[in-house]
Design a binder for these strands. Structure first.
Lengths: 204, 204
DNA sequence: GTCTATAGCATGATAGAC
DNA sequence: GTCTATCATGCTATAGAC
C-alpha cells in the first residue's frame, strides 16, 4: 500500500501467489477466500505468502492494483467514420467490458470493500470508470469538433452515454439474475446511441 | 428463506435482533459483522439469536428481506403538471433515494453477496430497482398518453432515464470517493431531464 | 526465500441449566 | 425462550529448520 510495487520483483513465486489469489478472490469473494486456499492453488506454503505480503488485506489490495494497472480499456478506437457507427462501436466495447465475468467480479469485490479500503476504491475508480470515461469523452469531443455532435461538455455527455449503457441489463447480470426475454446487449446499445443522437445530434 | 416470515412473531427480542443486525451489517459489511457484535448490540445472548435464526446467512437474509418489504420507493408522485417539472421531481426523488447512506450500504452488501445468496439478490432487485423502474415507467407512460412525450416503450425509456441518473456522481459516492468540484445532484438531475426531453419531447 | 509445524485467537454454533 | 459456558473450526500470523 505504501510501497511502490513497480520495483524489480517478478519473483516467480510472488507472481504465482498473485495469480492464485486473483482467481480465488474473484471466484469466492473476499470474505470466503482463505489464505490456505490461495497457498494451495499457488503451490506454495502459507508462510511464503506472508513473506511477500503482510496480510490478507494487503494481498487483496495487491491483486486489485495489479489488475487495475493492466487494464487497457479500449485502446484502439478510431473516431473516424459515421457518427452512429463510431458511437455504436464504443458502446458495444464498453458493454462487452462491463458485462465480462472478470469485470463484474472485480466490481462486486471492490464495491463491497470500498469503505474498508479506500485506496483500493480509488485505484479501481481511476483505472476503471475514470479511464473509460476519459476515452469516451475524447471520442465525443472529436465528434463534436467535426460537427457531428453538439455538446456543451464532452465529459458530461460521456457520463450520460455510459449511464445509458449501465441499465437494467447490467444490474441483472451483476446480481446474477436471468435476463428478460428480448433483453439483449444489442438492444441496449442501439437504444443508447439513439438517445445520444437525438439529444446531441446536429439535425435540430 | 423457505418460511413466510409474515406469521405472528413480533417477539420483541426477535425484532431487537433484527434491528441490531441491520445496523451492524449495513455498517461493517457481511464478513466483518460478528454474531457477538449483533448479540451485544441487541442486548441478547448469542444463543438467543440462534434460537430465532439458524445461521448467520439466514439472519442476514432476514434483515435484507425485511428492509425490502418495508421499502416504499416513491409513493406519491403525481404526473400532472409541466413535463419538465414532473420529470425533475421524479429524478430528484430517485437521486435522493439512491444516494442515501442506507440505500448505498444495502447495495454494497447485496451486490457482494448476490452470487452466494441468489434469493437475496432477487428480493432486493424486485423491491428496489424493479419497483422503482415500474413506477417511473408508469409516470412516463402517463406523460406519453398526454402527448408530452413520444415513446416507443415506456419501460425502455424509464430504464434509460434511471441510467442517466446513475452516473459518475453515484459511482463516486458508492465508492466513498469525494465528489468533483461542481458535481452536484441538481446538475445531474437537470442534465438527465434535458436529455430525456430532447430525445423524447414532442417538439421534433 | 522457502518450507513444516504450530501458536493464538476470533468466530460460528451448541449443551444444558433455569 | 433465554441465559452462561463451552466446543470445534478455521483463520491470521509466526518460529525455526533448511
Amino acid at each position: 500500500m505504501s510501497k511502490p510495487l513497480s520495483g524489480r520483483k517478478p519473483s516467480a513465486k510472488r507472481e504465482a501467489i498473485l495469480d492464485a489469489a486473483q482467481v480465488v478472490f474473484l471466484d469466492v469473494g473476499y470474505a470466503a477466500a482463505s489464505m490456505d486456499g490461495v497457498a494451495a492453488r499457488a503451490g506454495v506454503s502459507k508462510a511464503t505468502i506472508y513473506a511477500h505480503f503482510t496480510s490478507k488485506d494487503q494481498l487483496f489490495s495487491a491483486v486489485i492494483q495489479r489488475r487495475c494497472e493492466r487494464s487497457e480499456a479500449f485502446q484502439s478506437i478510431d473516431s473516424q467514420g459515421d457518427v452512429r457507427a463510431v458511437l455504436t462501436g464504443v458502446a458495444r466495447r464498453l458493454m462487452t467490458l462491463l458485462l465480462s465475468p472478470e469485470a463484474l467480479a472485480m466490481y462486486r469485490l471492490v464495491v463491497a470493500e470500498s469503505l474498508r479500503q479506500p485506496d483500493l476504491a480509488r485505484a479501481f475508480y481511476d483505472s476503471g470508470p475514470a479511464a473509460g470515461k476519459a476515452q469516451i469523452a475524447a471520442i465525443m469531443a472529436d465528434l463534436a469538433d467535426r460537427g457531428e455532435l453538439v455538446l456543451d461538455d464532452p465529459w458530461v455527455a460521456a457520463d450520460q452515454f455510459i449511464g445509458l449503457l449501465r441499465t437494467d441489463l447490467f444490474m441483472r447480470t451483476l446480481l446474477g439474475l436471468p435476463l428478460r426475454d428480448g433483453q439483449t446487449l444489442d438492444g441496449v446499445t442501439v437504444g443508447a446511441v439513439d438517445v445520444i443522437l437525438r439529444a446531441f445530434g446536429p439535425k435540430r
